[in-house]
Amino acid sequence: MMLIVGTIPSRDPLTTGKVSAEGEFLVVNGSRIPCTQGTGAMIGAALATTDYLGLEAPQALVVGDIGEGKGSREIYEYLIEKVAELSPEVLALHYWLPNMALTRRLCQAINKCARRPMMIADAASMYSAKAAGLAGEFDIFTPDATEAAFLADPDATHPAYIARHLFDTEITEAPRLAEVAYRNNSAAKLLLVKGAIDYIINDGGVVATITEPDVPELEAIGGTGDTITGLVAAFTYAGFEPHLAAIIAARANRMAGQFAEVTPATRVGQVVAQLPAVFKEYLCQWSGVRYVAGVNS
């Protein structure tokens, strides 16, 4: 099972279930979630990938939280209690109010899983993992350039508070920042640093850079970083090695942007909608494996 965990912008109660699509919405246990910036975009991209590959749809664990933190605390507590029982193969953590103490308890609970899940974190779940000194427990982080600087700052607990000399950097500084983050034990085993150049960095060394197609407008579109994380989660769930999953995810996201002919005003749902067409045209070439849509389960 691939379990995707995060908050959604509502006051809805905690819910969990296998995800399905209904028009422009995602459905989790009867609740409709828009495929917009945040956890919705991440789930949407993961579902598009599992659908194409004929794999079991992602299981989502979501709760409404508009920033007040109550929903976030509920989701932490639920996961701490249930994760060993659920024992997912891939656990992808996303938006929530970062809480260092609860993240610490969560990592202790994960140690009780019969088989350790592939651990992926983006957004504030990455912030809390790093701030709590637990980045090394994770297999994949997907920061952007600013978040890479945050990982490199040993004192920072949120990207709003990072040393000035680290913040004022370009994406090309990502390898240097990653090197510092690894030295400080503030990085996951693999980093996919998202930007004009996507860097895939494994245990401190750059293993790949992705620059094509060049679609700079993607940076302005809310949710196009979330989709990369959803893609990485789904491809690791499909059995790809993390670095290959990251390479394919970065390429697919860019290509989906190109297929959608995005402008800075495009919505992320339009990018997600292009993923099946991208996979159909490029996945065999990128992965070296032949897939037939929907019949690989």
Partner: peptide, 17 residues
């Protein structure tokens, strides 16, 4: 305003909407 991107805290998707 046509888009909001970046961030990681739970009020950002809310601000987006």
């Amino acid at each position: 305003i046509v888009n909001i991107s970046g961030g990681g805290c739970p009020d950002i998707p809310y601000l987006h909407t």
